[in-house]
Computed example of a mutant assay.
Amino acid sequence: MAAARIQRWAWTLSTYEYKIFYKKGKKNSNPDALSRLPLNRVGKTEVPAEMIMLMDHMDSTPVTAQQIKAWTRKDPILGQITNYVLKGWPNYRDNDEMKPYFSRKTELSVFDSCLLWGNRVVIPNPGRDIILQELHEGHQGISRMKVLARGYVWWPNMDAEIEQTVRACHKCQVNRHAPPEAPMHPWEWPSNPWSRIHIDYAGPLYGKMFLVCVDAHSKYLDVHVVNSATSANTIEKLRTMFAIHGLPESIVSDNGTPFASQEFQDFVQRNGIKHIRSSPYQPSTNGLAERAVQTFKEG
């Protein structure tokens, strides 16, 4: 096939007469127009500088040195601290507003009328909200905001204000990581049989509901068939079990309607039984009954 295709191309090309001329590469634009086509203007194309580790290029800073200088001059605390840095520090004064600056007096300096702590600019009060908004841009979280802030700015209680800004942000709270789950506290093993029982409903199965009851001491399983999971049917089956095994000290159930109704509460109170309900949306807190339901379904 390849030989036949080459032979056909040779036959097609042989029908033409050719004149071969030499042309310099810079004028030979026909083979590769994208790389060889000459431009109308002569000059070097400017390549934009690389921007590393930047997502956005800021045309202007949130605050300027002139603004910080003016705010520092008007601020009574920072103006006084600036004077101390230039002319000498007095004895320590028991002042809550001055205390953060006195503890850093050997590291404070003044450059162009702006107060610095190391290489970080001390931001006066009018510019702090602007800096917080800039740090919070992108909703990066508390840790990332603190890392960025500690590289450039400082003011007293800055970390606490950053944490408060994130906690007050609805988007940050919605998208935050779920807190770690607390370890489950196991139920204590009762010393006597039928002192604590766990109950739950299984079904519907074959059009019926099944009241599953398990003893926490012996793991004895007792299952009763009912037409519907109502408080009246639950009480009726529990009376049958209590007539055989006696009254338990406590009953553990979920927050289902048959167990949370006032009728069921009156029943357990009249019989002196303590009713314990599991935590909402946490079926594992009544895990013994859940496992008994699973065993019943598998059987």
Rank of each mutant, 00 (worst) to 15 (best):
E50M: 10
E97C: 04
L37H: 09
R36C: 09
T72G: 13
P100V: 03
T72Y: 05
R104K: 15
I52R: 14
G43I: 04
A33S: 12
K99L: 14
D96Y: 01
L54F: 08
F111M: 11
E46W: 04
M51E: 12
Y84R: 09
P90I: 00
N40R: 09
V85S: 09
A70K: 13
Q67I: 07
I77T: 15
L86Y: 02
D59I: 02
L37F: 14
G79W: 01
E107V: 01
L78Q: 04
P100D: 05
A49Y: 01
M51L: 15
N40I: 10
K44F: 03
A49F: 02
C114S: 11
A65D: 14
Q66Y: 02
K44M: 03
R73C: 03
W71T: 01
P90Q: 00
F102H: 09
I68A: 10
S103A: 12
T72V: 11
P62C: 08
G79P: 05
S60P: 00
N95M: 07
R104Y: 05
H57I: 11
P62K: 00
S60F: 02
P31W: 03
Q66L: 12
N91I: 05
D96M: 07
D112R: 13
T61H: 04
L39D: 10
A65S: 12
V63A: 10
T64F: 04
N83M: 05
S113I: 00
V42T: 15
Y92V: 07
D94P: 03
V85I: 08
P76D: 00
A49W: 01
S109V: 05
M55D: 14
G88D: 03
G43H: 06
M98Y: 10
E50W: 02
K87S: 12
